[in-house]
Deep mutational scan, measured.
Amino acid sequence: MGFKLLSKLLVYLTASIMAIASPLAFSVDSSGEYPTVSEIPVGEVRLYQIADGVWSHIATQSFDGAVYPSNGLIVRDGDELLLIDTAWGAKNTAALLAEIEKQIGLPVTRAVSTHFHDDRVGGVDVLRAAGVATYASPSTRRLAEVEGNEIPTHSLEGLSSSGDAVRFGPVELFYPGAAHSTDNLIVYVPSASVLYGGCAIYELSRTSAGNVADADLAEWPTSIERIQQHYPEAQFVIPGHGLPGGLDLLKHTTNVVKAHTNRSVVE
């Protein structure tokens, strides 16, 4: 069995187990497998329904001669939608809004960016022009300005110390501490036991640490421990890039980060 097929099978099995364990909360999309990078042309966006009122959005972007996937989250909030992270750029984010209108038909009224990198804030200006209120932590807003990236308009308070959590509509926002970046936030959907790890969490097929220019490698494993301790009931975990899975993604990420750190020390 090929690795790609095995990865998709694991996603399907995880979703099936969740649907059985929580039949009222989960209505997993039966329309197909989780979209992969090879299936999404740059400039297009796919939506994948995880649970009743919960979707991931998947886009792709060219970077350094390669094409990478990027995940975000959409959560229903009454007759409105909360968006977590842009679709990595203005063109993708405009396509995301169009796809949401086509498939869901509810307005996106608020959006949260989970850290300051372009795959999370690139497209904020498109959201703002569409009347979406954009939010991020003060740290993310400051770092985005320093980096020359787009800056969300509103500040999220109460997320300055490791372990801080605040309720934001249908989700809980959690600051686990520094990891992929010093400002990275985690998003949890309690009604569906869905954990969105953003770039602080890796997919299972990833074996290298990737972009760690703004990471705190020493603190990252401790931050992941905080996530595990705060959300032990999480059933569906979405990484910032690639295929979702279960809580095993947290341990896998820790292993990859520690291996990278150990290699760096040896070198």
Score class of each variant (00 low, 15 high):
residue 1 M to V: 04
residue 2 G to W: 07
residue 2 G to R: 06
residue 2 G to M: 14
residue 2 G to F: 13
residue 3 F to N: 08
residue 3 F to E: 06
residue 5 L to H: 08
residue 8 K to A: 07
residue 8 K to H: 14
residue 9 L to C: 10
residue 10 L to F: 05
residue 11 V to F: 10
residue 11 V to S: 10
residue 11 V to T: 08
residue 12 Y to D: 13
residue 13 L to A: 08
residue 13 L to S: 07
residue 13 L to E: 07
residue 14 T to S: 11
residue 17 I to C: 05
residue 19 A to D: 15
residue 22 S to I: 15
residue 22 S to A: 13
residue 23 P to Q: 07
residue 24 L to G: 08
residue 24 L to D: 10
residue 25 A to V: 09
residue 26 F to G: 08
residue 27 S to E: 09
residue 27 S to F: 10
residue 28 V to W: 13
residue 29 D to G: 08
residue 30 S to L: 12
residue 34 Y to V: 12
residue 35 P to Y: 11
residue 38 S to L: 14
residue 38 S to I: 09
residue 39 E to V: 08
residue 39 E to M: 10
residue 40 I to G: 12
residue 42 V to S: 15
residue 44 E to N: 15
residue 45 V to E: 03
residue 45 V to N: 15
residue 45 V to M: 11
residue 46 R to Q: 12
residue 47 L to Y: 00
residue 47 L to C: 02
residue 50 I to L: 09
residue 51 A to D: 14
residue 52 D to Q: 06
residue 52 D to M: 09
residue 53 G to A: 09
residue 53 G to T: 14
residue 54 V to Y: 00
residue 56 S to P: 05
residue 58 I to G: 03
residue 58 I to A: 10
residue 59 A to C: 09
residue 62 S to I: 07
residue 62 S to R: 10
residue 62 S to N: 14
residue 62 S to H: 15
residue 62 S to D: 14
residue 63 F to S: 06
residue 65 G to E: 10
residue 66 A to M: 15
residue 67 V to T: 07
residue 68 Y to F: 09
residue 69 P to S: 14
residue 70 S to G: 04
residue 70 S to D: 02
residue 72 G to A: 01
residue 73 L to E: 02
residue 74 I to T: 09
residue 75 V to P: 01
residue 75 V to Y: 02
residue 75 V to A: 10
residue 77 D to P: 01
residue 77 D to C: 05
residue 79 D to G: 13
residue 79 D to E: 14
residue 82 L to E: 03
residue 82 L to A: 12
residue 82 L to R: 02
residue 83 L to V: 13
residue 85 D to F: 00
residue 85 D to V: 00
residue 85 D to C: 00
residue 86 T to F: 00
residue 86 T to P: 03
residue 87 A to I: 00
residue 87 A to E: 00
residue 88 W to P: 00
residue 88 W to H: 00
residue 88 W to S: 00
residue 89 G to E: 01
residue 89 G to L: 03
residue 91 K to S: 13
residue 91 K to M: 13
residue 91 K to Q: 13
residue 92 N to G: 14
residue 92 N to K: 13
residue 93 T to Y: 00
residue 94 A to N: 12
residue 95 A to Y: 11
residue 95 A to L: 09
residue 96 L to H: 01
residue 96 L to D: 01
residue 96 L to I: 04
residue 97 L to F: 05
residue 98 A to V: 09
residue 99 E to F: 15
residue 100 I to H: 00
residue 101 E to D: 10
residue 102 K to F: 05
residue 103 Q to V: 12
residue 104 I to L: 15
residue 105 G to N: 15
residue 105 G to I: 07
residue 107 P to Y: 15
residue 110 R to I: 08
residue 110 R to L: 11
residue 110 R to M: 05
residue 112 V to M: 10
residue 112 V to E: 03
residue 112 V to Q: 02
residue 112 V to P: 03
residue 113 S to K: 04
residue 113 S to W: 04
residue 114 T to W: 02
residue 114 T to E: 00
residue 115 H to P: 01
residue 115 H to W: 00
residue 116 F to I: 04
residue 116 F to Y: 10
residue 116 F to H: 15
residue 117 H to S: 00
residue 117 H to K: 02
residue 117 H to W: 00
residue 118 D to A: 08
residue 118 D to H: 10
residue 119 D to K: 01
residue 121 V to T: 05
residue 122 G to N: 15
residue 123 G to P: 03
residue 123 G to A: 03
residue 124 V to S: 11
residue 125 D to L: 12
residue 128 R to M: 13
residue 128 R to L: 05
residue 132 V to H: 00
residue 132 V to Y: 00
residue 133 A to Q: 14
residue 133 A to P: 14
residue 134 T to S: 11
residue 135 Y to C: 03
residue 135 Y to V: 02
residue 136 A to N: 03
residue 137 S to D: 04
residue 138 P to I: 15
residue 138 P to S: 14
residue 139 S to I: 15
residue 139 S to N: 15
residue 139 S to V: 08
residue 140 T to M: 02
residue 140 T to E: 03
residue 141 R to Y: 04
residue 142 R to L: 12
residue 143 L to Q: 11
residue 143 L to S: 12
residue 143 L to F: 12
residue 144 A to K: 05
residue 147 E to P: 06
residue 147 E to T: 13
residue 148 G to S: 13
residue 148 G to K: 11
residue 148 G to M: 10
residue 149 N to R: 12
residue 150 E to P: 15
residue 150 E to H: 05
residue 151 I to L: 11
residue 152 P to R: 02
residue 152 P to E: 02
residue 152 P to F: 05
residue 152 P to Q: 02
residue 153 T to G: 12
residue 153 T to E: 12
residue 154 H to I: 07
residue 155 S to N: 07
residue 155 S to P: 07
residue 156 L to I: 06
residue 158 G to P: 14
residue 159 L to P: 11
residue 159 L to Q: 00
residue 159 L to V: 14
residue 160 S to K: 13
residue 160 S to W: 14
residue 161 S to R: 14
residue 163 G to E: 09
residue 163 G to T: 11
residue 165 A to L: 14
residue 165 A to N: 15
residue 166 V to N: 08
residue 166 V to Q: 15
residue 166 V to F: 10
residue 167 R to N: 06
residue 168 F to D: 01
residue 169 G to R: 04
residue 169 G to N: 03
residue 171 V to Y: 01
residue 171 V to Q: 01
residue 171 V to N: 01
residue 173 L to V: 14
residue 173 L to G: 01
residue 173 L to S: 00
residue 174 F to G: 01
residue 175 Y to D: 02
residue 176 P to L: 02
residue 177 G to F: 01
residue 178 A to N: 15
residue 178 A to G: 10
residue 178 A to P: 13
residue 180 H to P: 01
residue 181 S to F: 01
residue 182 T to I: 06
residue 183 D to N: 04
residue 183 D to G: 02
residue 183 D to A: 00
residue 184 N to D: 03
residue 185 L to S: 03
residue 186 I to N: 03
residue 186 I to C: 03
residue 186 I to W: 01
residue 187 V to F: 02
residue 188 Y to H: 09
residue 189 V to W: 00
residue 189 V to S: 04
residue 193 S to C: 03
residue 193 S to A: 10
residue 193 S to M: 09
residue 194 V to E: 00
residue 195 L to P: 03
residue 196 Y to P: 01
residue 196 Y to H: 14
residue 197 G to W: 00
residue 197 G to V: 07
residue 197 G to R: 01
residue 198 G to E: 02
residue 199 C to A: 00
residue 204 L to I: 12
residue 204 L to N: 07
residue 208 S to C: 05
residue 208 S to M: 12
residue 208 S to N: 15
residue 209 A to S: 11
residue 210 G to A: 13
residue 210 G to E: 10
residue 210 G to L: 05
residue 210 G to C: 04
residue 211 N to W: 13
residue 211 N to A: 10
residue 211 N to P: 05
residue 212 V to S: 12
residue 212 V to E: 12
residue 212 V to Y: 05
residue 212 V to R: 09
residue 213 A to G: 10
residue 213 A to I: 09
residue 213 A to W: 08
residue 214 D to V: 10
residue 216 D to W: 10
residue 216 D to G: 10
residue 217 L to E: 06
residue 217 L to V: 12
residue 219 E to K: 07
residue 219 E to M: 15
residue 220 W to C: 03
residue 222 T to I: 10
residue 223 S to T: 06
residue 224 I to W: 01
residue 225 E to N: 04
residue 226 R to W: 05
residue 227 I to N: 04
residue 227 I to V: 11
residue 229 Q to K: 14
residue 230 H to Q: 13
residue 230 H to E: 10
residue 232 P to G: 09
residue 232 P to A: 09
residue 232 P to Y: 05
residue 233 E to A: 12
residue 233 E to W: 12
residue 234 A to K: 03
residue 234 A to W: 02
residue 236 F to D: 15
residue 237 V to Y: 05
residue 238 I to L: 07
residue 239 P to E: 01
residue 239 P to M: 01
residue 240 G to V: 03
residue 242 G to N: 03
residue 242 G to S: 03
residue 243 L to Q: 10
residue 243 L to G: 07
residue 245 G to D: 06
residue 246 G to M: 07
residue 246 G to Q: 08
residue 246 G to Y: 08
residue 249 L to W: 01
residue 249 L to K: 01
residue 252 H to F: 04
residue 254 T to N: 15
residue 256 V to G: 01
residue 256 V to K: 04
residue 257 V to N: 05
residue 257 V to D: 00
residue 257 V to R: 01
residue 258 K to H: 09
residue 259 A to G: 11
residue 259 A to Q: 10
residue 260 H to V: 10
residue 260 H to L: 10
residue 262 N to M: 11
residue 262 N to A: 09
residue 262 N to G: 09
residue 263 R to N: 13
residue 263 R to T: 09
residue 264 S to R: 12
residue 264 S to M: 12
residue 265 V to T: 15
residue 265 V to M: 04
residue 266 V to W: 14
residue 267 E to C: 03
